[in-house]
């Protein structure tokens, strides 16, 4: 059974349709790259999965449970329930909590009961992925640099006891060196039977590191674009 199965999913904001009848599935253990230009629906696809678009239609099944359906209002009303059922999001930009310490920001990601009880252990494993945060645990998150804020945002998503991680544009607005490190760290995490979807504009960052790379164009998915672009060298060699 697929971890996430989307059938004929459309969504958008107001009178605008951004996602056009998507069919798409994620298998357990997969790490998927989602590439495409600005404004072609990458972020909207992620928002649709967690019910944060203005309206949506079509079936989204997560671990056999329907989390989609037809909806024309109540933006984000189902999001907490969907997140708690096992989907963690690291949103575009970083929706961190500026006045809370880094530690509290991370803890807030461990929302489900199981994750909350094991939050110390989880925090340690997040700190192994992002060592620069270790010395800043007690510092207010609003005072961090852009790269560190993004680490907090992604780290907060990793704190959750989730089966599916949705990471939206981890490299956005970061210096090339920092974004290479961040994406590399994301690609090294052991997912077990979970899965991860990384939306990214910068294709070379992902090439060779994901199981599948899907292209997003004008609200429609182009299947595996990774092979067609196979001759692009990985980012580390480019710089």
């Amino acid at each position: 059974m697929s971890l996430l199965q989307m059938e004929e999913v459309s969504s958008g904001y107001g009178t605008m349709r951004v996602i056009h009848g998507l069919n798409f599935s994620i298998e357990p253990g997969e790490r998927i790259g989602l590439v495409g230009l600005n404004g072609h629906g990458k972020t909207t696809l992620i928002s649709t999965i967690v019910g944060m678009t203005g309206w949506q239609d079509g079936s989204i099944e997560f671990m056999g449970q329907q989390i989609g359906g037809r909806r024309s209002h109540g933006v984000g009303r189902n999001t907490p329930k969907i997140v708690r059922s096992g989907i963690a999001i690291a949103p575009q930009g970083d929706a961190i909590f500026p006045g809370l310490s880094v530690e509290e920001n991370l803890d807030s990601g461990a929302y489900t009961d199981g994750a909350w009880k094991t939050r110390k252990r989880r925090r340690d494993s997040v700190l192994e992925v992002f060592p620069p945060l270790r010395s800043r645990l007690k510092q207010s998150a609003g005072t961090l640099s852009g790269g560190e804020r993004r680490m907090v945002s992604v780290g907060r998503a990793l704190m959750a006891d989730a089966k599916l991680y949705l990471v939206d544009e981890p490299s956005l607005g970061l210096a090339p060196k920092i974004s290479i490190g961040l994406v590399a760290a994301l690609c090294e995490i052991d997912l077990g039977d979970g899965a991860m979807l990384i939306a990214e504009q910068n294709l070379p960052l992902l090439s060779g590191k994901c199981d599948r790379i899907l292209g997003m164009h004008a609200g429609e998915l182009k299947e595996d674009v990774g092979e067609a672009l196979g001759d692009i060298p990985p980012a580390a060699e480019m710089s």
């Binding site: 967690v50 944060m52 984000g76 907490p80 929706a95 909590f97 006045g99 807030s108 909350w116």
Partner: peptide, 25 residues
């Protein structure tokens, strides 16, 4: 407490709180 953390998170950023699973309602 955990509820207190949720409440403070919601004060800072209600959208972000929603995305970590804190029900705003």
């Amino acid at each position: 407490s955990r509820r207190g953390l949720q409440m403070r998170a919601m004060m800072m950023n209600p959208l972000g709180a929603n995305m970590v699973g804190v029900s705003v309602r």
